[in-house]
């Protein structure tokens, strides 16, 4: 065959390939269309448009009058809103701190125990630890309000039964106790998630490494602090950020155990319950939903989440650069 014919064949092939590429790309675009539409219309667009609405005011469903930053000024200068806002923010920080301290530490403890492959029944333990996370927060929240009921609740009965009756308390009626108690109930429910993630992380640590440390005479405690914990840093990061995101928009557990107003006396009010009352249910004593103000609260929550997630991403990148991975 002459060179000319060969080039011609090559050109035909290329053209066919190019036509194929165009066709394939067209199909891929078609494949993407439904996902992009649903995700944009019902998630991305409402998120950003809600932020825009924080600059508007108006009666009823749609805030229509542009008011600039008046909603934010109202939120931070009117004592009614300001006090409730900072109260909710402080409570949410406490709620998050207790989850980090109790839920995630217990998760790490359980994962360390379960990572021992010689432990009998580890699959059963694992299934039990995760079980509450499959239940509706509403169901567990309601159930615990009955258990913690001061007059008839099983917890106080149990305490009296074992001679610790002096400890019996109105667990959810005491403004100082209610938030920690609800945080513990929530930790009880969700501890399975950090457990699973830490366990997955621990199981990727190579046996040779741990064996080598033991041969060198390291105690189990030293192996945990010097080898396992540093290697778990990325998992600790993701667990923390997921806890942060989950806690900063937690609603159901407060709604079930303390009502939408975070009883007693707003002592358990979180950002999401505050947002719900302001925007949807109508805040006391205004009793009228205020969409513009609600949008401002949602925007602030969004910025807080963004700050937390960005911090995590930056810290993660720095660590990656240091270790060169």
């Amino acid at each position: 065959m002459s060179d000319a014919v060969l080039t011609e064949v090559g050109q035909v092939r290329e053209r066919a390939a190019a036509r194929w590429d165009v066709q394939r790309r067209r199909t891929w675009v078609l494949f993407l269309v439904p996902a992009v539409i649903v995700y944009t219309v019902f998630m991305a667009f409402p998120l950003f448009n809600s932020m825009r609405l924080s600059l508007y005011q108006g009666k009823g469903l749609t805030p229509e009058t542009y008011v600039g930053f008046a909603n934010y000024t109202e939120l931070f200068t009117n004592p009614l809103w300001r006090d409730r806002f900072f109260n909710a923010l402080r409570n949410t920080v406490v709620f998050f701190a207790i989850h980090m301290l109790v839920q995630n530490t217990l998760g790490l403890l359980f994962a360390s125990l379960l990572s021992n492959v010689h432990l009998r029944g580890r699959n059963i333990y694992r299934a039990v630890i995760f079980l509450p996370a499959t239940l509706s927060v509403l169901v567990t929240g309601f159930l615990w309000t009955l258990i913690l009921n001061p007059r008839w609740g099983m917890l106080n009965q149990l305490l009296e039964g074992v001679g610790l009756g002096a400890l019996a308390r109105p667990w959810l009626g005491d403004a100082n106790l209610a938030l920690p108690v609800i945080s513990l109930v929530s930790s009880w429910q969700w501890v399975g998630l950090p457990t699973m993630m830490f366990l997955a992380g621990l199981l990727t640590i190579s046996d040779e490494l741990l064996e080598a440390a033991r041969v060198d005479g390291a105690s189990a405690w030293q192996v945990f602090w010097r080898i396992k914990l540093p290697l778990l840093k990325p998992v600790i990061g993701i667990v923390s950020v997921l806890t942060f995101v989950g806690n900063f928009n937690a609603f159901d557990v407060i709604f079930a155990m303390a009502g939408a107003r975070g009883e007693p006396g707003y002592s358990t009010d979180l950002m999401a319950t505050f947002f719900y009352r302001t925007a949807i249910a109508g805040e006391h004593p205004v009793a009228q939903p205020n969409m513009g103000l609600g949008a401002a609260i949602a925007t602030i929550m969004f910025l807080i989440l963004l700050a937390g997630v960005s911090l995590w991403l930056i810290l993660g990148r720095e660590r990656d650069e240091k270790t060169g991975t």
């Binding site: 996902a35 950020v241 989440l305």
Partner: peptide, 20 residues
């Protein structure tokens, strides 16, 4: 664009979702 949604709860868009 899709992945960004992993960390942002859809609840924060409730006000506009309500209207949509």
């Amino acid at each position: 664009y899709f992945i960004a949604g992993l960390m942002i709860p859809i609840r924060l868009g409730t006000i506009n979702l309500f209207q949509i």
